[in-house]
Design a protein around this nucleic acid. Structure first.
Lengths: 109, 109
DNA sequence: TTATCATATGACGAATATGTCACAGATGGA
DNA sequence: TCCATCTGTGACATATTCGTCATATGATAA
């Protein structure tokens, strides 16, 4: 990764941010259910709070989420400008190729 | 990965296919330069042929590329229906957040 | 057939990413 | 202040992914 064309490097980071189940589950949850606090996300997804915090940190840093504090809570929101059209394309592609994606050996089990 | 909601699993696979430098470099190359054979791709990117073949296999299987044989060669083409709008969104996001992406510690070096 | 070029595949070590644990920091109420 | 609640962070073992090597397969021509 160190010695890689800058454009390619950016693409890799962009897609890598979205290619983890914790992170994409959070995006999917917020896309469907709107803004949520950390503990709401953790509870609704059944994930440990620290796992969620790590994921939120990455997604926020990379520009996919924003947050605002409200008392003891922190509320996370989607950057819908990127996420909405992106997920629509993903949905459409998956509709056509889900079986193939699932059976791809390179992207293991 | 095994015990994961099917929708989330599909998203992960979709984005994982694009989150590797070999695979996204190939997509970027074909996007800019049009259809190419395996050895052209290998030469132009400076990658080993087997490395390219592994990547092509994954991308083709997952519906991002198609191929046709022409004599001894195999020519790979983009599925532009998915790739073009997807990369436009990525480009736009990267234009705004490239610095953040680069400095994200979670997505290491 | 054999030779040669082009591409594909399997296996494995090395590199990388992930989740968990333990703990730290922040906030607000009593 | 102290306490309870909510969120963030660092480190590490585990799990996953990648690229390379060796080799196999496919295609063409002589």
């Amino acid at each position: 990764m160190s010695q890689m064309d800058e454009r390619i490097r950016s693409y890799v980071l962009f897609f890598k941010a979205l290619s983890n189940s914790t992170r994409i589950a959070i995006i999917d949850l917020l896309r469907r259910g709107g803004d949520k606090t950390v503990s709401e996300i953790a509870r609704e997804l059944g994930f440990e709070q620290s796992r969620v915090s790590h994921a939120l940190r990455c997604l926020t840093f990379c520009g996919f989420l924003t947050n605002r504090r409200e008392g003891k809570n922190k509320i996370y929101s989607l950057n819908r400008e990127t996420i909405e059209p992106l997920m629509e394309i993903a949905d459409k592609h998956i509709e056509a190729y889900a079986n193939h994606l699932r059976r791809c050996e390179v992207l293991r089990r």
